[in-house]
Design a binder for these strands. Structure first.
Lengths: 198, 198
DNA sequence: ACCTGAACACCGTTCAAGT
DNA sequence: ACCTGAACACCGTTCAAGT
């Protein structure tokens, strides 16, 4: 808190993004408001328009940040893996954990975009695809179907579980489960031979 | 169009729901507006509050309608099936087709609810669970995992594919595919033996 | 009992004017 | 170049008043 704010904020763009992150975390994607963000930063409601085309542009920027963070999660999952099958499992756990820990960011990442699609989504899928290819080559993952197709299926399973779990759908149906167990059961039919569970 | 509207609408509740359905179909979940709906019906913006607690109550009612329609889709899929494996496949196609044909309704069904959870979701999962149990008993679906767990996994895969496909995620990644083919590849790892594709 | 009219607090967005 | 102040059209919601 500075006693006397200068006329020029100096780093308004970053301040708006930071306030946006906080608002999302505190009140959810549903409560996102550009006016509220401007108020928190201590600036007029018109000020953001010097840095973002409109409300959606700010949301899309926060979504892009989410994609970058998400991509890091996937790369760290692969980096920390002990073997190709473990890499897939860790990606799965990372995917679901990201959704559970940052539900609002996850929501805006996969909402129906107003502007052009993000450039930051495909790299994540690419990382995942490479992990699937590696697992297929090592023989732990079936290669009955091409890697992109199997990747698409597992990605869909993880994404569906993440979405339904975040909304609480599984718990409502009496299907709530710890994250690791949920991932294990999702991946189970894909392995060429049964895997011991941790 | 009646030339002289009576003071009492008579069937305002249903008229509001109908206008809500149209607005969702025309402009998407994103553009939902209670004022716009009242305007379309030709009534004051305060009138809906005699029939719905608030905006969210109207949305939740439309979501419930969606669940009922969705449940019918699943039951018809099972009813029209030639065998237990075909029932699962038809459910999958019905699930994805519903999402693609009614994206706005699908969105509000699985959005983060404000009010209490819908009573109309669980019956759909129940129908699906029974189809999985039947398929497991007939031997076409692996019974390595309990029916509720396998149901959860396939449900997640279908839901994820529906969500990503509706948002256009698959197409963006060069993974776009016809609905039936997508469902086939999603279900492929679950069958106990390879199934011929139609 | 059901709906209107007017009001309130709140949005997103624009634009002339200030620094 | 960056931000303010005031305005505009639009929300959701409330409530006294009308029929």
């Amino acid at each position: 808190m500075v006693a006397d704010q200068p006329y020029h904020h100096g780093a308004l763009r970053e301040a708006l993004l930071e306030a946006g992150r906080e608002l999302l975390a505190e009140r959810g994607a549903h409560a996102f408001s550009l006016s509220e963000i401007a108020r928190r930063v201590g600036v007029s409601t018109a000020a953001p328009y010097r840095h973002f085309a409109d409300r959606d542009a700010l949301i899309d920027t926060l979504a892009d940040e989410g994609y970058i963070k998400f991509h890091d999660v996937l790369r760290e999952a692969v980096a920390g893996a002990t073997d190709p099958a473990d890499a897939i499992t860790r990606i799965g756990v990372g995917y679901l954990r990201f959704a559970v820990e940052h539900p609002a960011v996850f929501t805006i990442m996969f909402r129906d975009r107003q502007g052009p699609p993000s450039d930051y989504g495909p790299p994540s899928f690419q990382t995942f695809l490479e992990a699937v290819e590696t697992a297929q080559r090592s023989g732990v993952l079936s290669d009955r179907l091409p890697a992109p197709v199997t990747s698409r299926s597992i990605w869909a399973a993880l994404h569906g579980a993440a979405t339904l779990d975040a909304v609480g759908g599984f718990a409502k149906l009496g299907l709530g489960a710890p994250l690791e167990e949920l991932v294990e059961t999702l991946l189970d039919p894909y392995w060429t031979r049964p895997r011991p569970h941790g």
